[in-house]
Write a protein that binds this DNA or RNA. Structure first.
Lengths: 214, 214
DNA sequence: ATTACTAAGCAGCGAGTAA
DNA sequence: TTTACTCGCTGCTTAGTAA
Protein backbone atom coordinates (compact mmCIF):
# COMPACT_ATOMS: atom_id res chain seq x y z
CA UNK A 1 0.00 0.00 0.00
CA UNK A 2 2.80 2.36 0.98
CA UNK A 3 4.59 1.42 -2.22
CA UNK A 4 1.49 1.92 -4.32
CA UNK A 5 0.97 5.34 -2.76
CA UNK A 6 4.55 6.31 -3.56
CA UNK A 7 4.15 5.21 -7.17
CA UNK A 8 0.93 7.20 -7.45
CA UNK A 9 2.65 10.30 -6.08
CA UNK A 10 5.22 9.97 -8.85
CA UNK A 11 2.43 10.02 -11.40
CA UNK A 12 1.97 6.29 -12.04
CA UNK A 13 -1.82 6.66 -12.04
CA UNK A 14 -1.88 8.63 -15.28
CA UNK A 15 1.38 7.47 -16.89
CA UNK A 16 3.97 4.83 -17.15
CA UNK A 17 6.78 5.96 -14.92
CA UNK A 18 10.42 5.01 -15.20
CA UNK A 19 11.62 3.83 -11.82
CA UNK A 20 14.35 1.37 -10.85
CA UNK A 21 14.00 -0.81 -7.80
CA UNK A 22 17.02 1.01 -6.37
CA UNK A 23 15.30 4.39 -6.68
CA UNK A 24 12.12 3.03 -5.15
CA UNK A 25 14.20 1.59 -2.32
CA UNK A 26 15.59 5.05 -1.57
CA UNK A 27 12.11 6.53 -1.60
CA UNK A 28 10.84 3.87 0.80
CA UNK A 29 14.01 3.84 2.92
CA UNK A 30 14.62 0.15 2.36
CA UNK A 31 16.89 -2.13 0.35
CA UNK A 32 16.86 -2.65 -3.40
CA UNK A 33 15.94 -6.30 -2.85
CA UNK A 34 12.93 -5.46 -0.75
CA UNK A 35 11.77 -2.79 -3.18
CA UNK A 36 12.09 -5.30 -6.00
CA UNK A 37 10.03 -7.80 -4.03
CA UNK A 38 7.35 -5.19 -3.33
CA UNK A 39 7.06 -4.53 -7.05
CA UNK A 40 6.82 -8.26 -7.74
CA UNK A 41 4.04 -8.52 -5.13
CA UNK A 42 2.10 -5.61 -6.58
CA UNK A 43 2.55 -7.16 -9.99
CA UNK A 44 1.22 -10.51 -8.75
CA UNK A 45 -1.76 -8.74 -7.21
CA UNK A 46 -2.26 -7.05 -10.59
CA UNK A 47 -2.12 -3.66 -8.98
CA UNK A 48 0.64 -2.50 -11.30
CA UNK A 49 1.73 -3.42 -14.81
CA UNK A 50 5.39 -3.39 -15.75
CA UNK A 51 7.47 -3.24 -18.89
CA UNK A 52 10.83 -4.65 -18.01
CA UNK A 53 13.61 -3.34 -20.22
CA UNK A 54 17.24 -4.32 -19.94
CA UNK A 55 18.25 -1.14 -18.17
CA UNK A 56 14.95 0.37 -17.09
CA UNK A 57 11.43 -0.61 -16.25
CA UNK A 58 8.22 1.29 -16.85
CA UNK A 59 5.53 1.01 -14.21
CA UNK A 60 1.88 1.97 -14.27
CA UNK A 61 -0.89 1.48 -11.74
CA UNK A 62 -3.79 -0.67 -12.96
CA UNK A 63 -7.46 -0.18 -12.23
CA UNK A 64 -7.20 -2.69 -9.39
CA UNK A 65 -4.39 -0.69 -7.84
CA UNK A 66 -6.26 2.52 -8.35
CA UNK A 67 -9.30 1.09 -6.55
CA UNK A 68 -7.16 0.08 -3.59
CA UNK A 69 -5.81 3.62 -3.34
CA UNK A 70 -9.29 5.06 -3.61
CA UNK A 71 -10.48 2.92 -0.71
CA UNK A 72 -7.65 4.18 1.40
CA UNK A 73 -8.35 7.74 0.36
CA UNK A 74 -11.97 7.25 1.27
CA UNK A 75 -11.02 6.28 4.82
CA UNK A 76 -9.01 9.43 5.31
CA UNK A 77 -11.75 11.52 3.80
CA UNK A 78 -14.11 10.10 6.40
CA UNK A 79 -11.68 11.06 9.13
CA UNK A 80 -11.11 14.63 8.01
CA UNK A 81 -13.68 15.91 5.54
CA UNK A 82 -16.76 14.30 6.87
CA UNK A 83 -16.48 15.10 10.53
CA UNK A 84 -20.06 16.23 10.02
CA UNK A 85 -21.10 12.68 9.15
CA UNK A 86 -20.97 9.57 11.30
CA UNK A 87 -21.59 6.24 9.60
CA UNK A 88 -22.97 3.19 11.37
CA UNK A 89 -23.26 -0.25 9.89
CA UNK A 90 -25.62 -2.64 11.56
CA UNK A 91 -28.42 -5.04 10.91
CA UNK A 92 -32.14 -4.91 11.36
CA UNK A 93 -33.60 -6.43 14.52
CA UNK A 94 -37.11 -6.54 15.93
CA UNK A 95 -38.07 -4.43 18.88
CA UNK A 96 -40.90 -5.40 21.17
CA UNK A 97 -43.43 -2.98 19.80
CA UNK A 98 -42.68 -0.44 22.49
CA UNK A 99 -41.27 1.92 19.85
CA UNK A 100 -44.72 2.22 18.36
CA UNK A 101 -46.19 3.05 21.72
CA UNK A 102 -43.68 5.77 22.42
CA UNK A 103 -43.23 7.41 19.03
CA UNK A 104 -46.97 7.32 18.48
CA UNK A 105 -47.53 9.24 21.69
CA UNK A 106 -48.64 12.81 21.07
CA UNK A 107 -46.08 14.15 23.57
CA UNK A 108 -43.23 12.91 21.40
CA UNK A 109 -44.90 13.06 17.98
CA UNK A 110 -45.62 16.78 18.20
CA UNK A 111 -42.04 17.56 19.17
CA UNK A 112 -40.65 15.33 16.39
CA UNK A 113 -42.72 17.22 13.84
CA UNK A 114 -41.67 20.60 15.17
CA UNK A 115 -37.97 19.88 15.68
CA UNK A 116 -37.27 17.39 12.88
CA UNK A 117 -39.56 18.76 10.21
CA UNK A 118 -41.44 15.58 9.49
CA UNK A 119 -44.28 13.57 10.95
CA UNK A 120 -42.75 10.34 12.22
CA UNK A 121 -44.40 7.10 11.25
CA UNK A 122 -45.36 5.50 14.56
CA UNK A 123 -42.80 2.84 15.42
CA UNK A 124 -39.03 2.61 15.36
CA UNK A 125 -36.68 0.68 13.13
CA UNK A 126 -34.23 -1.02 15.47
CA UNK A 127 -30.70 -1.47 14.18
CA UNK A 128 -28.19 -3.61 16.02
CA UNK A 129 -24.75 -2.07 15.55
CA UNK A 130 -21.34 -3.59 16.13
CA UNK A 131 -20.28 -3.36 19.75
CA UNK A 132 -17.18 -1.46 18.69
CA UNK A 133 -19.32 1.32 17.23
CA UNK A 134 -20.64 2.25 20.67
CA UNK A 135 -17.77 4.75 20.59
CA UNK A 136 -19.52 6.57 17.79
CA UNK A 137 -22.64 6.90 19.91
CA UNK A 138 -20.52 8.46 22.60
CA UNK A 139 -19.23 10.83 19.93
CA UNK A 140 -22.78 11.82 19.05
CA UNK A 141 -23.74 12.42 22.67
CA UNK A 142 -20.73 14.65 23.15
CA UNK A 143 -21.56 16.52 19.99
CA UNK A 144 -25.12 17.22 21.04
CA UNK A 145 -28.20 16.87 18.89
CA UNK A 146 -31.82 17.91 18.68
CA UNK A 147 -33.31 17.78 22.15
CA UNK A 148 -36.79 16.40 22.71
CA UNK A 149 -38.07 17.39 26.15
CA UNK A 150 -39.47 15.01 28.71
CA UNK A 151 -43.12 15.33 29.54
CA UNK A 152 -45.74 14.07 31.94
CA UNK A 153 -48.71 12.02 30.76
CA UNK A 154 -50.81 9.14 31.95
CA UNK A 155 -49.48 9.51 35.47
CA UNK A 156 -45.86 8.94 34.53
CA UNK A 157 -42.83 10.69 33.05
CA UNK A 158 -41.79 10.15 29.48
CA UNK A 159 -38.01 10.76 29.42
CA UNK A 160 -36.24 13.23 27.19
CA UNK A 161 -34.45 11.99 24.06
CA UNK A 162 -31.79 13.37 21.73
CA UNK A 163 -32.34 13.11 17.97
CA UNK A 164 -29.96 13.32 15.04
CA UNK A 165 -31.09 13.72 11.47
CA UNK A 166 -29.90 10.70 9.55
CA UNK A 167 -30.14 8.82 6.31
CA UNK A 168 -31.20 5.19 6.79
CA UNK A 169 -30.35 3.07 3.75
CA UNK A 170 -30.73 6.19 1.67
CA UNK A 171 -34.07 7.28 3.18
CA UNK A 172 -34.53 10.45 5.18
CA UNK A 173 -35.13 9.96 8.89
CA UNK A 174 -33.53 10.38 12.29
CA UNK A 175 -32.08 8.37 15.13
CA UNK A 176 -33.36 8.66 18.66
CA UNK A 177 -31.11 8.29 21.72
CA UNK A 178 -32.63 8.23 25.21
CA UNK A 179 -31.07 10.89 27.41
CA UNK A 180 -30.56 8.27 30.10
CA UNK A 181 -29.34 4.73 29.48
CA UNK A 182 -26.04 5.15 27.67
CA UNK A 183 -24.16 2.40 25.90
CA UNK A 184 -26.89 0.55 24.09
CA UNK A 185 -25.83 -1.17 20.87
CA UNK A 186 -29.23 -0.73 19.27
CA UNK A 187 -30.05 2.43 17.37
CA UNK A 188 -33.70 3.39 17.10
CA UNK A 189 -34.62 5.07 13.85
CA UNK A 190 -37.71 7.05 12.98
CA UNK A 191 -38.75 8.29 9.55
CA UNK A 192 -41.72 9.85 7.74
CA UNK A 193 -42.65 6.47 6.35
CA UNK A 194 -42.57 2.85 7.43
CA UNK A 195 -38.97 2.04 6.53
CA UNK A 196 -39.37 -1.68 7.05
CA UNK A 197 -42.03 -1.70 4.36
CA UNK A 198 -40.75 0.87 1.88
CA UNK A 199 -37.28 -0.71 1.92
CA UNK A 200 -38.76 -4.23 2.08
CA UNK A 201 -36.41 -5.19 4.87
CA UNK A 202 -36.37 -8.21 7.12
CA UNK A 203 -34.59 -9.03 10.35
CA UNK A 204 -30.88 -9.50 9.79
CA UNK A 205 -30.72 -7.29 6.70
CA UNK A 206 -27.79 -4.85 6.64
CA UNK A 207 -28.62 -1.22 7.42
CA UNK A 208 -26.38 1.77 6.83
CA UNK A 209 -27.12 4.80 8.95
CA UNK A 210 -25.45 8.08 8.08
CA UNK A 211 -25.91 10.59 10.86
CA UNK A 212 -25.70 14.23 9.79
CA UNK A 213 -24.25 16.44 12.46
CA UNK A 214 -24.75 20.18 12.92
CA UNK B 1 -0.38 4.03 10.83
CA UNK B 2 -3.03 1.49 9.98
CA UNK B 3 -3.89 1.29 13.66
CA UNK B 4 -4.01 5.04 14.03
CA UNK B 5 -6.33 5.24 11.04
CA UNK B 6 -8.63 2.67 12.57
CA UNK B 7 -8.74 4.56 15.88
CA UNK B 8 -9.53 7.75 14.03
CA UNK B 9 -12.39 6.07 12.16
CA UNK B 10 -13.86 5.10 15.51
CA UNK B 11 -13.82 8.73 16.54
CA UNK B 12 -10.61 8.90 18.57
CA UNK B 13 -9.68 12.24 17.00
CA UNK B 14 -12.49 14.11 18.75
CA UNK B 15 -13.05 11.87 21.78
CA UNK B 16 -11.64 9.36 24.12
CA UNK B 17 -12.83 6.02 22.87
CA UNK B 18 -13.25 2.86 24.87
CA UNK B 19 -11.48 0.05 23.07
CA UNK B 20 -9.88 -3.12 24.38
CA UNK B 21 -6.82 -4.58 22.73
CA UNK B 22 -8.94 -7.60 21.88
CA UNK B 23 -11.48 -5.49 20.00
CA UNK B 24 -8.74 -3.64 18.18
CA UNK B 25 -7.21 -6.98 17.27
CA UNK B 26 -10.49 -8.05 15.65
CA UNK B 27 -10.68 -4.81 13.74
CA UNK B 28 -7.12 -5.22 12.46
CA UNK B 29 -7.43 -8.97 11.94
CA UNK B 30 -4.55 -9.77 14.23
CA UNK B 31 -3.92 -11.12 17.73
CA UNK B 32 -4.66 -9.40 21.02
CA UNK B 33 -0.95 -9.39 21.82
CA UNK B 34 -0.04 -7.67 18.58
CA UNK B 35 -2.83 -5.11 18.97
CA UNK B 36 -1.62 -4.42 22.50
CA UNK B 37 1.91 -3.95 21.19
CA UNK B 38 0.68 -1.56 18.48
CA UNK B 39 -1.01 0.55 21.14
CA UNK B 40 2.15 0.55 23.24
CA UNK B 41 4.13 1.68 20.21
CA UNK B 42 1.71 4.49 19.39
CA UNK B 43 1.83 5.49 23.04
CA UNK B 44 5.63 5.55 23.00
CA UNK B 45 5.53 7.68 19.87
CA UNK B 46 3.09 9.95 21.74
CA UNK B 47 0.55 9.58 18.97
CA UNK B 48 -2.14 8.44 21.38
CA UNK B 49 -2.83 9.00 25.06
CA UNK B 50 -4.35 6.29 27.19
CA UNK B 51 -6.19 6.00 30.45
CA UNK B 52 -5.73 2.46 31.61
CA UNK B 53 -8.51 1.28 33.88
CA UNK B 54 -8.73 -2.12 35.44
CA UNK B 55 -11.30 -3.41 32.97
CA UNK B 56 -11.21 -0.85 30.18
CA UNK B 57 -8.92 1.67 28.59
CA UNK B 58 -9.78 5.01 27.04
CA UNK B 59 -7.79 6.06 24.00
CA UNK B 60 -7.48 9.41 22.30
CA UNK B 61 -5.32 10.54 19.43
CA UNK B 62 -2.87 13.32 20.33
CA UNK B 63 -1.87 16.26 18.17
CA UNK B 64 1.21 14.34 17.05
CA UNK B 65 -0.96 11.46 15.92
CA UNK B 66 -3.37 13.80 14.24
CA UNK B 67 -0.53 15.41 12.31
CA UNK B 68 0.68 12.02 11.11
CA UNK B 69 -2.81 11.23 9.82
CA UNK B 70 -3.06 14.60 8.16
CA UNK B 71 0.20 14.03 6.32
CA UNK B 72 -1.09 10.73 5.07
CA UNK B 73 -4.36 12.32 4.05
CA UNK B 74 -2.47 15.04 2.26
CA UNK B 75 -0.65 12.44 0.16
CA UNK B 76 -3.88 10.87 -0.97
CA UNK B 77 -5.36 14.25 -1.65
CA UNK B 78 -2.44 14.96 -3.94
CA UNK B 79 -3.07 11.71 -5.76
CA UNK B 80 -6.78 12.20 -6.30
CA UNK B 81 -8.02 15.73 -5.75
CA UNK B 82 -5.14 17.68 -7.04
CA UNK B 83 -4.48 15.91 -10.27
CA UNK B 84 -4.48 19.42 -11.63
CA UNK B 85 -1.42 20.23 -9.57
CA UNK B 86 2.05 18.73 -9.79
CA UNK B 87 4.48 19.54 -7.01
CA UNK B 88 8.26 19.55 -7.43
CA UNK B 89 10.75 19.95 -4.66
CA UNK B 90 14.23 20.99 -5.61
CA UNK B 91 16.98 23.40 -4.83
CA UNK B 92 18.25 26.53 -6.44
CA UNK B 93 21.25 26.24 -8.75
CA UNK B 94 23.04 28.75 -10.95
CA UNK B 95 22.65 28.62 -14.67
CA UNK B 96 25.26 30.00 -16.98
CA UNK B 97 23.47 33.19 -17.84
CA UNK B 98 22.04 31.75 -21.03
CA UNK B 99 18.55 31.96 -19.54
CA UNK B 100 18.83 35.71 -19.55
CA UNK B 101 19.90 35.70 -23.19
CA UNK B 102 16.98 33.54 -24.27
CA UNK B 103 14.13 34.83 -22.17
CA UNK B 104 15.20 38.38 -22.85
CA UNK B 105 14.94 37.77 -26.58
CA UNK B 106 12.00 39.53 -28.14
CA UNK B 107 10.98 36.38 -30.03
CA UNK B 108 10.29 34.59 -26.74
CA UNK B 109 9.39 37.57 -24.55
CA UNK B 110 6.49 38.65 -26.76
CA UNK B 111 5.02 35.17 -26.78
CA UNK B 112 5.43 34.83 -23.00
CA UNK B 113 3.49 38.03 -22.48
CA UNK B 114 0.74 37.00 -24.88
CA UNK B 115 0.36 33.40 -23.76
CA UNK B 116 1.20 33.62 -20.05
CA UNK B 117 -0.25 37.00 -19.30
CA UNK B 118 2.83 38.53 -17.76
CA UNK B 119 6.05 40.15 -18.87
CA UNK B 120 8.82 37.78 -17.84
CA UNK B 121 11.78 39.18 -16.03
CA UNK B 122 14.76 38.38 -18.27
CA UNK B 123 16.54 35.37 -16.88
CA UNK B 124 15.50 32.00 -15.51
CA UNK B 125 15.54 30.58 -12.01
CA UNK B 126 17.12 27.16 -12.32
CA UNK B 127 15.88 24.52 -9.93
CA UNK B 128 17.62 21.18 -9.61
CA UNK B 129 14.98 18.54 -8.89
CA UNK B 130 15.42 15.04 -7.55
CA UNK B 131 16.26 12.57 -10.28
CA UNK B 132 13.19 10.55 -9.35
CA UNK B 133 10.92 13.48 -10.15
CA UNK B 134 11.84 13.31 -13.83
CA UNK B 135 8.70 11.16 -14.05
CA UNK B 136 6.64 14.18 -13.19
CA UNK B 137 8.20 16.09 -16.08
CA UNK B 138 7.19 13.25 -18.34
CA UNK B 139 3.69 13.60 -16.89
CA UNK B 140 3.67 17.30 -17.77
CA UNK B 141 4.86 16.67 -21.31
CA UNK B 142 2.12 14.10 -21.84
CA UNK B 143 -0.43 16.48 -20.43
CA UNK B 144 0.53 19.28 -22.76
CA UNK B 145 1.05 22.90 -21.81
CA UNK B 146 1.22 26.35 -23.28
CA UNK B 147 3.13 26.14 -26.53
CA UNK B 148 5.67 28.80 -27.42
CA UNK B 149 6.55 28.60 -31.12
CA UNK B 150 10.07 28.38 -32.49
CA UNK B 151 11.28 31.33 -34.52
CA UNK B 152 14.17 32.47 -36.69
CA UNK B 153 16.41 35.31 -35.67
CA UNK B 154 20.05 36.30 -35.94
CA UNK B 155 20.66 33.62 -38.56
CA UNK B 156 19.61 30.71 -36.35
CA UNK B 157 16.55 28.90 -35.06
CA UNK B 158 15.30 29.42 -31.55
CA UNK B 159 13.52 26.17 -30.60
CA UNK B 160 9.96 25.90 -29.38
CA UNK B 161 9.25 25.50 -25.68
CA UNK B 162 6.29 24.36 -23.57
CA UNK B 163 5.26 26.42 -20.57
CA UNK B 164 3.16 25.62 -17.51
CA UNK B 165 1.83 28.23 -15.16
CA UNK B 166 3.32 27.58 -11.77
CA UNK B 167 3.79 28.93 -8.30
CA UNK B 168 7.46 29.13 -7.29
CA UNK B 169 7.83 29.37 -3.51
CA UNK B 170 4.48 31.05 -3.45
CA UNK B 171 5.21 33.54 -6.25
CA UNK B 172 3.37 33.53 -9.55
CA UNK B 173 5.41 32.38 -12.52
CA UNK B 174 5.84 29.56 -15.01
CA UNK B 175 8.19 26.75 -15.88
CA UNK B 176 9.71 26.40 -19.32
CA UNK B 177 10.48 23.02 -20.91
CA UNK B 178 12.35 22.87 -24.23
CA UNK B 179 10.37 20.88 -26.80
CA UNK B 180 13.50 18.89 -27.58
CA UNK B 181 15.92 17.57 -24.99
CA UNK B 182 13.79 15.51 -22.64
CA UNK B 183 14.86 14.21 -19.26
CA UNK B 184 16.68 17.16 -17.78
CA UNK B 185 16.58 17.35 -13.99
CA UNK B 186 16.69 21.12 -13.98
CA UNK B 187 13.50 23.11 -14.21
CA UNK B 188 13.75 26.62 -15.60
CA UNK B 189 11.36 29.09 -14.07
CA UNK B 190 10.31 32.50 -15.29
CA UNK B 191 8.26 35.07 -13.44
CA UNK B 192 7.19 38.71 -13.65
CA UNK B 193 9.89 39.68 -11.20
CA UNK B 194 13.40 38.61 -10.31
CA UNK B 195 12.60 35.68 -8.03
CA UNK B 196 16.14 35.27 -6.80
CA UNK B 197 16.00 38.79 -5.45
CA UNK B 198 12.41 39.09 -4.27
CA UNK B 199 12.66 35.78 -2.42
CA UNK B 200 16.25 36.51 -1.33
CA UNK B 201 17.40 33.08 -2.40
CA UNK B 202 20.84 31.63 -2.77
CA UNK B 203 22.23 28.52 -4.42
CA UNK B 204 21.21 25.42 -2.56
CA UNK B 205 18.06 26.93 -1.04
CA UNK B 206 14.97 24.73 -1.24
CA UNK B 207 12.42 25.62 -3.88
CA UNK B 208 8.86 24.33 -4.13
CA UNK B 209 7.30 24.52 -7.54
CA UNK B 210 3.57 23.88 -7.87
CA UNK B 211 2.64 23.45 -11.51
CA UNK B 212 -0.99 24.25 -12.34
CA UNK B 213 -2.34 22.12 -15.11
CA UNK B 214 -5.27 22.78 -17.41
C1' DA C 1 23.49 -0.66 -15.25
C1' DT C 2 19.58 -3.37 -14.22
C1' DT C 3 16.15 -7.37 -11.77
C1' DA C 4 15.64 -10.87 -8.74
C1' DC C 5 17.36 -15.42 -6.88
C1' DT C 6 19.13 -17.95 -2.61
C1' DA C 7 20.38 -18.09 2.01
C1' DA C 8 21.27 -16.36 6.54
C1' DG C 9 19.92 -13.47 10.09
C1' DC C 10 16.81 -10.93 12.50
C1' DA C 11 12.38 -8.77 13.66
C1' DG C 12 7.69 -9.32 14.50
C1' DC C 13 3.93 -12.49 15.61
C1' DG C 14 1.20 -14.97 18.78
C1' DA C 15 0.76 -18.89 22.39
C1' DG C 16 1.15 -19.14 27.09
C1' DT C 17 0.70 -16.82 31.08
C1' DA C 18 1.20 -13.36 35.05
C1' DA C 19 -0.76 -9.47 37.34
C1' DT D 1 -12.33 -9.92 32.49
C1' DT D 2 -8.34 -6.78 31.30
C1' DT D 3 -2.97 -5.47 29.61
C1' DA D 4 1.29 -6.89 28.45
C1' DC D 5 5.31 -9.88 29.57
C1' DT D 6 8.50 -13.88 27.79
C1' DC D 7 9.86 -16.85 24.28
C1' DG D 8 9.88 -19.92 20.35
C1' DC D 9 8.91 -19.87 15.60
C1' DT D 10 7.83 -17.99 11.31
C1' DG D 11 8.45 -15.03 7.71
C1' DC D 12 10.44 -10.73 6.14
C1' DT D 13 14.67 -8.36 5.16
C1' DT D 14 18.99 -7.96 3.13
C1' DA D 15 23.80 -9.48 1.75
C1' DG D 16 25.77 -11.84 -1.89
C1' DT D 17 25.46 -12.80 -6.44
C1' DA D 18 23.74 -14.51 -11.13
C1' DA D 19 21.90 -13.20 -15.39
Amino acid sequence: MQTLKELALLGAMQNKIELSSHELAEQLQTSQQTASRYLLELDTLEMISRELGVKKQMIQITSTGSEALENEYHSYKQIFDLTNKVVFNGKLVSGMGEGKYYTGHKGYADQFEKRLGFVAYPGTLNVQIEYIERNKIRLLRNYGGIEIEEFQAENRTFGGVICFKATINGRKGAIVLPKRSHYATILECIAPDNLRETLRMHDGDPVEIIVHLQ
